[in-house]
């Protein structure tokens, strides 16, 4: 036994490339859970499979052609953009504000940070159900509150655009804690000497925020923007819990539409095609975004 262990050790040390073997388990998992599903997804997207039968036939590019003129897909795409970019904007503003507020030492700072971060640890679906009971028409907390001011009850989620905006806001509020944590880390890594030098030169708070804090925060900004946008573009749980894509299909994100087409509508082939579109789109957005932000970082930090 001892000999074989020494052999392995010797083999590993003999050539640094041998260490690549250590990546094998991760590589195997990646193949099984990412590469194979993507390839099988591409395959399904060229079929008319209903999602459960053992038989199906190939239909060429029919599913992709159908997608171009399908109002459901375009509505879901538009909503996905709102969920992705809208949430990111609100989340960044809120997250940055909280981070600026909570970076300085004061009593209960840890407690305040925890409270703001807490919702980020709860599953999207659960957040969705909790908020559903707040915005629901009958016995909803929000309507009770507006009722105090003598305003008539509103059926908040009954109109598509309003439902989309409400879901976007809820997503932003629920997950701004994550952004806050990233920004706090960023803020704490900025050396004090810059702002001290600036204040000696007579810079006011806004000027020092605009020309020192913000540029120095760019690396944190890159991380948080990429994470938030991808998170928003993949929005699923909140939509399912709050509207299930309704009214009609007005609040579907691409993810929830894919789920609905695949399972409920039994158009697995078509759903896979929409899935491919969503996949390519998210990949493109993250590549472009990363490139842009890296360039910005270089500009500022030389």
């Amino acid at each position: 036994m001892k000999n074989s262990n020494t052999d392995i050790r010797r083999f590993m040390q003999s050539d640094p490339r041998a260490l690549t073997f250590l990546a094998l388990p991760a590589f195997a998992l990646f193949i099984v859970f990412v590469v194979v599903p993507i390839i099988s997804g591409i395959n399904i997207s060229f079929t008319n499979w209903n999602g459960y039968s053992q038989e199906y036939s190939y239909v060429g590019f029919d599913n992709y052609r159908k997608m171009v003129s399908d109002p459901q897909v375009w509505t879901a795409f538009k909503n996905t953009l709102i969920y992705g970019f809208g949430s990111t904007l609100v989340q960044t503003v809120l997250g940055l504000a909280f981070a600026m507020l909570l970076v300085n030492r004061f009593l209960f700072r840890g407690f305040a940070r925890t409270i703001i971060y807490l919702p980020a640890m709860v599953a999207q679906l659960i957040i969705g159900y909790i908020w559903y009971f707040i915005v629901t028409y009958e016995r909803g907390a929000l309507n009770d509150i507006v009722g105090l001011f003598g305003v008539a009850k509103v059926d908040w989620m009954s109109k598509g655009t309003r439902a989309v905006l409400i879901i976007m806001m809820i997503n932003s509020i629920a997950y701004c804690g994550k952004t806050m944590i990233i920004f706090i880390a960023g803020l704490e890594s900025i050396p004090n000497m810059y702002s001290e030098a600036a204040s000696i030169d007579g810079a006011n708070t806004w000027q020092s925020f605009r020309h020192i804090t913000l540029p120095m925060l760019l690396p944190a900004m890159t991380t948080s923007l990429v994470l938030n946008i991808i998170g928003g573009l993949k929005m699923f749980g909140l939509v399912v819990a709050m509207t299930n894509g309704g009214p009609g299909y007005a609040s579907h994100s691409l993810s929830s539409l894919i789920n609905n087409l695949y399972f409920a509508n039994q158009q697995a082939g078509y759903s896979a095609a929409v899935g491919m579109f969503s996949f390519v789109f998210i990949v493109l957005v993250s590549i472009v975004l990363r490139k842009y932000l890296e360039k910005k970082e270089e500009q500022y930090n030389g």
């Binding site: 009214p247 009609g248 299909y249």
Partner: peptide, 8 residues
Amino acid sequence: TIGGALTA
């Protein structure tokens, strides 16, 4: 889907 959309 259409039922929900028609109601709204």
